[in-house]
């Protein structure tokens, strides 16, 4: 049992979660003096902090996105322990994207785990999630409704390849988030034996190169601009979701619009976005996995952040867990990342 309750030293401030004995924020939404960052997505990694602690991969991603920033960066590999003020900090893999981590903070005999975003499925592009038992667990709730149960990825990839053979004259343009989903989809296609070049929107090229530099094999990639329009018929083209409905997609021959996201589970959502081929591939835990994680972490207290908190709190309380919603600024539903 901790000597002091964790709620006495882990605070919710307007900028984000603040670890008082260590004097640092976790994933603060505005620039602060000291920040620990779970992963490189824009709603977690912000520019302008004076000091940043994160995995080497996350720091590389931040440097890529923020042109050199952060200046005062300190890399901490998974499992490596670091004394910060009166607290001990270490990072455990979160399985969300390359370099994603749960922040484990120990102080006064107690342990809190702030998981950031996480998933439990195998992902060829990042280290799998590692459950860490704790007294307090902070969890995401992006897909925290029992209707969200992600199907096996292999089946979704098979649907994509089947469509590619049935509509061989149409460019299959898939909306993917630039960090994580893009590279995971490519890696899954390679795993399924797809060895043709995959065409990229310009906004995706940099992070693919970064992944490759970290040893993730993505196979032949080409910018869309490198080939003639006709040559894209029957090819796979990846683009940020915002580009699908934009004028950019007009350069493609008779595009068939696909999207890879956990949101694609719900038909109305997919149709609203004009998606013809929804692929349910998510980088977040689904309902069953969220509950299994609560069991594995075995924390008597859980704070639930960004997403459908209500259902997860209900289910956690039914398991005898003290659960409450944690309203953090700047964590609105970011659907592109699903």
């Amino acid at each position: 049992m901790p000597e002091t309750p964790i709620t006495d030293w882990l605070e919710v401030r307007p900028q984000g979660l603040f670890v008082r004995p260590g004097g640092f924020f976790i994933d603060p939404v505005t620039a602060v003096d000291r920040a620990v960052v779970t992963h490189g997505h824009a709603d977690h990694a912000r520019p302008g902090h004076a000091h940043v602690l994160a995995t080497p991969e996350t720091l590389a991603i931040m440097r890529h996105r923020f042109a050199g920033d952060p200046a005062g960066a300190q890399a901490l590999a998974y499992g490596q322990r670091l004394r910060v003020g009166d607290a001990t900090v270490w990072l455990a893999p979160a399985g969300h994207v390359l370099g994603s981590a749960q922040v484990v903070v120990e102080h006064a005999g107690g342990r809190a785990v702030v998981s950031g975003d996480y998933k439990r499925r195998a992902d060829p592009t990042c280290v799998p999630f590692e459950p860490v038992t704790a007294e307090l667990f902070v969890t995401e709730a992006t897909f925290a409704l029992p209707v969200f149960r992600h199907p096996p990825v292999a089946g979704e990839i098979a649907r994509l390849l089947r469509s590619l053979s049935l509509f061989a004259e149409r460019a299959h343009v898939i909306g993917v988030y630039a960090l994580g989903k893009c590279q995971r989809l490519i890696a899954e296609l390679r795993r399924a034996g797809y060895d043709r070049p995959i065409f990229l929107h310009g906004a995706l090229e940099g992070l693919c190169r970064l992944y490759e530099a970290h040893g993730v094999v993505l196979g032949p990639l080409q910018p869309v601009t490198a080939v003639e329009r006709r040559a894209l018929a029957g090819q796979i083209v990846l683009a940020p979701p915002s580009a699908l409905a934009d004028r950019w997609s007009r350069r493609l021959p008779d595009p068939l619009t696909a999207a890879a996201s956990g949101w694609m589970r719900v038909r109305q959502r997919a149709r609203q976005r004009g998606v013809e081929l929804p692929l349910v591939i998510s980088d977040h835990a689904d309902w069953d996995e969220l509950l299994a994680t609560l069991d594995a972490v075995a924390a008597p207290e859980v704070w639930v952040t960004h997403g459908r908190e209500e259902a997860l709190i209900f289910a956690a309380q039914a398991r005898g867990i003290r659960a409450r919603a944690l309203s953090l600024v700047g964590r609105e539903e970011a659907e592109d990342g699903g």
Binding site: L145, P146, V147, V266, Q268, R308, E310, A311, F314, A315
Partner: peptide
């Protein structure tokens, strides 16, 4: 849980 889900879907 069904009510929350039905409401959403």
């Amino acid at each position: 849980l069904f009510a929350l889900s039905y409401d959403y879907v």
